[in-house]
Structure formats: structure tokens, C-alpha cells
Simulated scan of single mutants.
Amino acid sequence: MGEKISSTKGFTDSVGHSTLSNIASADKFNRWMYETITPFCEGETLEVGGGIGNISQCFLLDDKKLTVTELRDDYCDIVKENLGNHACLNEVISMDIVDPEFDTKYQSYFESFDVVFALNVMEHLEDDLLAISNCKKLLKAGGKLIILVPAFQFLFNSFDRALGHYRRYKKDSLKELFKRNKFEVLHSQYFNFIGTLGWWVSGHVLRKKVVPEGQMKLYNFFVPLIKIIDFFTKRFVGLSVIVVGRKN
């Protein structure tokens, strides 16, 4: 399938919206990502950078209460339009997790959540250390922070540049951000080993800027098999890395 940049010119982030729209069609993949983090999600949960709601809807379909934040107002509007009538959606908040006036603007949300998670957000932020610090402020004592980001700098390619990524991570570098913010690290793993192959070919060889919709649909079909492979590889390699920490 062709890239969809031209069809999303009305959005502030046309490349990001095209990518999220293509990933939205991969229901098995989104469900897999959701099921990977939900063992750590108990209580009041906040999603930082919910995009167009690909993971948000998984929580709501399972009748789990969720508050969603998003930097872009047009994404907030999409989430409200598509998911706003769901009884388990508490609120959709326009929030910049690295806002210079974060403490003033969002103080009413401080220490309100048992879980804060951000999937594919930190790589977009120049000051990821500050972002982790501000996520911590939103957590209750003993609350958990879950971060998923792209893994391995050698995979950085045209996709990353088009999406505005500053970097990719390894388990050690992501855990270091948690430790510098005085989190207790509870869990770390890599995620989606097979995805590295498609990312490399499409981004390095074909130099695409948007994850192709056809590629996502094909990948989605094989997710049950890919999950089995990931069981054996998640300690060592993957397209993404996940770290979970506890606020003490």
C-alpha cells in the first residue's frame, strides 16, 4: 500500500497520523502490546501521549477506567469523538509532559494515579529525563510507571527521522532514566523482535517515511506466531524496549 501522508494534510502531524492510522488496523498487534503492559496496570491509570487511541480502546474494551493525555489537540478531538461515550473513559486532557509550566498547569493531577504509562512517547522529547520526572509527579506513592520506546540506535532510520525521534534506547539506558528519578525498577524486556526486520528493510533499504499499511496488515496476521518467537527473544533483542518502575 502507498504512504498516506497526502491524505492527512489537515493534521498538525501528518506523518505521525498516517503511521498511527496504519497501526490502528493491526488489532492483534495493538492487543499484544496492551496485554504486555496490563499485568502492571492496577487502579487509576493514566496514558501519556495516547495518540488517536489505538491502545486506549483496548483498555476501554476490557472495561478498565482510563484517563488519556495528548499533546496535540487534533488527536484529543479524535479520541473524544471515537471513545468519548465510553463509560470507562474518565477524561481526555491536553497535556505537554515537558511543559515549562508543568507544575502550575497540571498540579491538580499530581499524585492522582496508580499507574502512568507512555508508549512510544519519550523518543519524541529532547528532555526525556524531565518527562520521566513529570510522570512521577502524577503518580501516587507506590505507583508504577511503564515506558515503551524504540530500541537500538543502529535501527535509527528514515522512519525515526520522519516521526521526529531524537533517539532509540537499550534496556540499560532506559533503566538509567528511571534510576536517576529514584524509581525502583521492577521489570525490563525487549518487545517485538520480528518487527526489527520489517523496520530495517522499509526504513533503511526502501527509505519509507510511513510504516506501510499493507506491511502492518501482513504482520498483524502473523502476530500469534510472532508472540511465540518473542517469548524466547525478549531478554535480548526487540524493536522496542519496556521498563516498569515503582515510585517509592
Rank of each mutant, 00 (worst) to 15 (best):
L89D: 01
F152G: 00
G245L: 02
I5R: 14
G238H: 07
V201E: 02
D160H: 14
I5S: 08
K136R: 11
Q153G: 09
T196K: 06
D96N: 14
K227A: 00
G245P: 09
D114Y: 04
Y166M: 03
Q215S: 08
V241Q: 00
K4Y: 15
R246G: 02
L83P: 05
H17Q: 14
V79P: 02
N134K: 08
S94G: 08
F231S: 07
T69H: 09
K227C: 01
D114V: 02
R167G: 00
V185N: 00
M122H: 12
Y169N: 00
K65D: 11
E42Q: 13
K209N: 06
L61G: 10
N120P: 11
I93V: 13
L239I: 13
P224K: 12
E42W: 11
T45P: 03
E44G: 04
L20V: 06
E35P: 13
W199H: 09
A131C: 01
Q153T: 12
S7E: 09
S25H: 12
T36Q: 04
K247D: 02
T104D: 00
L186C: 01
F113V: 05
L225F: 13
M95R: 10
L83E: 03
V185Q: 00
P39I: 05
I93F: 11
E176T: 11
F11L: 07
E3Y: 12
T36K: 10
S25W: 06
V92N: 05
F236M: 06
I147F: 00
Q107R: 10
G10Q: 06
L206Y: 13
V241R: 02
I226Y: 05
K80N: 02
